[in-house]
């Protein structure tokens, strides 16, 4: 057992300050363990979200030494403990209290994305046939645990606050999972261009770097969707076809 210092943001609705807490740390601990110990022993009212503590639910997102991470999956032995470990709430969402932010915007964005719309079943028993290869592509996106760390680091949201014009990487991944699902028949390409604001993404790949599920957000989801938008709206040949009523998706 040794002692380490955790510099935790305390306060409400954006106002607040860092407060230092020293606590015992032991082998194998993660940041969330230290936060829990501080909460149980020194600060019962320290506000923090968490659930599964196993990297599966995406509740305990925070910025640890400035890096957006899940607290439950950040081992203390990956951090320099000779200096205080800073823990702050995410910055792209309104602050509530201590480490908790108001992420409700994400839930309202999702509602506006056209839902899964399958083609008629392939078999009389109401089931479909799908190759594992096609499932693989969609399953990568469906690994998302909705931790919203990708939203937190996206410049369009974090620095430019364009929450009204841009759905953010999480919901481009969500749209990709629907668009690339071989059973789905809805068309989200016009919405991607207009309401979802895909053009605002300038492919800096910050989202991909912070994804705890290692989803290749930019290369596998966003760029192929951008290509669909370009093919539909900006490709001169397709445009010509569309004029004569032979357009394709």
């Amino acid at each position: 057992m040794s002692t380490a210092t955790f510099r935790i943001w305390r306060g409400e609705k954006g106002a607040g300050k860092f407060q230092d807490y020293s606590t015992e740390v032991s082998s194998g601990m993660v940041v969330l363990d230290a936060v829990h110990r501080i909460q149980a022993e020194q600060a019962n009212n320290l506000a923090v979200r968490w659930n599964c503590k196993a990297g599966k639910c995406g509740s305990c997102s925070a910025e640890i030494n400035g890096m957006p991470k899940l607290m439950c999956m950040t081992r203390l032995n990956s951090l320099p403990l000779e200096q205080p470990v800073t823990i702050e709430p995410m910055k792209a969402f309104p602050h509530v209290r201590d480490l908790v932010t108001d992420v409700s915007w994400n839930y309202s964005v999702k509602k506006n994305i056209a839902k899964f719309t399958p083609r008629p079943p392939d078999a009389p028993d109401g089931t479909w046939r799908m190759a594992q290869k096609d499932a693989d592509r969609v399953q990568e996106f469906r690994k998302c645990i909705e931790c919203f760390l990708c939203q937190d680091v996206c410049h369009v949201l974090r620095e430019h606050h364009m929450h009204e014009q841009f759905v953010g990487p999480r919901f481009l991944v969500y749209a990709a999972a629907l668009e690339m699902n071989p059973l789905d028949q809805a068309d989200r390409v016009p919405a991607l261009r207009q309401q979802y604001g895909i053009g605002l993404c300038n492919i800096t790949k910050c989202c991909t770097k912070v994804c705890p599920e290692n989803i290749t957000i930019t290369d596998n989801a966003i760029i192929p969707l951008k290509e669909r938008v370009v093919d539909r709206f900006f490709d001169p040949l397709t445009k010509l076809f569309r004029v004569f009523g032979a357009g394709s998706r």
Binding site: F116, P121, G126, T127, R129, A131, Q132, A135, N181, D184
Partner: peptide, 20 residues
């Protein structure tokens, strides 16, 4: 389970494309 698939769940597949 089949209903979940109709609502968008993507299960692992058998060689002939059914739910594994």
């Amino acid at each position: 389970v089949r209903e979940l698939e109709a609502w968008g769940a993507v299960f692992d597949r058998t060689a002939d494309g059914r739910i594994l």
